[in-house]
């Protein structure tokens, strides 16, 4: 009746679900049993006079008070499970989720970006911070019994802790148009070591991509595109078009020919040499970009003639 249980939270939800299920069965059998019993036991016979019973206070109190107590109990039980699911523990691994008709994009803590299928470490609190680029979507992982809308104008959160290794289905549970039902993904829980390896190697398709293609992914994933253009237009930072090999002038009056070493330095410690005409506004990326993507960035900048 219920999908596989991927977390402790799922087990708690299921306990309540099953308790409610039996509560339902009990009351249904009671009501249906009485109704059907009446239909047979008090079948119409002509000339029978029925008793004139207008009410019975004791009986009415019983059937008002007992259900009220029961549902208040259910309320607290459900609320407890809800509260324990709705705030992510402080030490959670944070994954950013972007929903867009009809795709999920994940940005991992190291800044790498994946579509649709990701891996997470097992037995770890994982928090998803989500936003939408267009209409409402909803992040639903049935095995974890978690679900939360993804909104275009704010960040919402969902978290869980996968107890077992396995691949868990992710579905969109808020109607979003034509391919709503095809907007799914998968979250694979693996041992932490395997997860680390997957992070370094990136998704399988990276293995076959050219460095400059990886660089382009990194250019968007790490937000370089918010300050640097690739078509020559001036932005918060200088354009990357024609950057490689050019002689750069700095605000302290010195110059350098742009080579790989300079690019590496500019990314890791941008404040060391500030290009003349620009402010020292670039955040330092030292240690934040995966080696593979770092190589890719350099190759990408080189390719922009």
């Amino acid at each position: 009746m219920l999908p596989e249980q991927g977390s402790q939270h799922a087990r708690h939800v299921d306990t309540l679900f099953m308790a409610l299920f039996w509560l339902n069965v009990f009351f249904f059998v009671l009501v249906a049993g009485l109704a059907i019993y009446c239909v047979y036991a008090f079948k119409r016979r002509e000339g029978v006079k029925t008793p004139h019973i207008t009410h019975n206070l004791a009986l009415e109190l019983i059937w008002s008070v007992i259900p009220t107590m029961l549902v208040i109990g259910v309320f607290f039980w459900g609320a407890a499970g809800f509260l324990d699911y709705s705030v992510a523990p402080g030490n959670s691994l944070e994954i950013a989720v972007t929903a867009k008709k009809w795709n999920w994009t994940f940005t991992m803590p190291d800044g790498s970006v994946y579509g649709k299928n990701i891996q997470i470490p097992v037995n770890t609190n994982v928090k998803f911070v989500m936003t939408s680029m267009d209409v409402l979507h909803d992040f639903y992982v049935p095995a974890m019994r978690v679900k939360h809308d993804v909104l275009p104008n704010r960040y919402t959160e969902v978290w869980f802790n996968a107890e077992k290794e396995g691949t868990y289905h992710l579905a969109c549970a808020e109607y979003c148009g034509k391919s709503h039902s095809d907007m799914f993904g998968s979250i694979k829980a693996v041992q932490p070591a395997e997860y680390e390896k997957w992070l370094v190697d990136g998704p399988p398709e990276w293995a076959t991509m050219k460095p400059e293609e990886l660089g382009k992914i990194a250019y968007e994933a790490y937000g370089c595109n918010t300050c640097h253009s690739v078509d020559g237009t001036k932005n918060t930072g200088p354009t990357w078009k024609g950057l490689y090999g050019k002689t750069e002038k700095f605000s302290d009056g010195t110059t350098t020919v742009v080579d790989e070493a300079y690019i590496k330095e500019s990314i890791n410690i941008p404040g060391k040499k500030v290009v003349s005409g620009y402010e020292n506004q670039m955040p330092a990326f030292e240690g934040q970009i995966k080696p593979k993507l770092f190589e890719g960035l350099i190759a990408y900048i080189k390719s922009l003639k």
Binding site: H12, V13, L16, F17, L20, L23, N24, F27, F28, V71, V74, F75, W77, G78, A79, A80, G81, F82, Y85, D138, Y140, P142, R145, V146, K147, A173, E174, Y175
Partner: peptide
């Protein structure tokens, strides 16, 4: 009766939509 599943918070999260 099945409305009770939906009024209760933690089960509704799973069953909503």
């Amino acid at each position: 009766l099945t409305g009770i599943f939906l009024g209760s918070l933690s089960t509704d999260i799973h069953l909503h939509d």
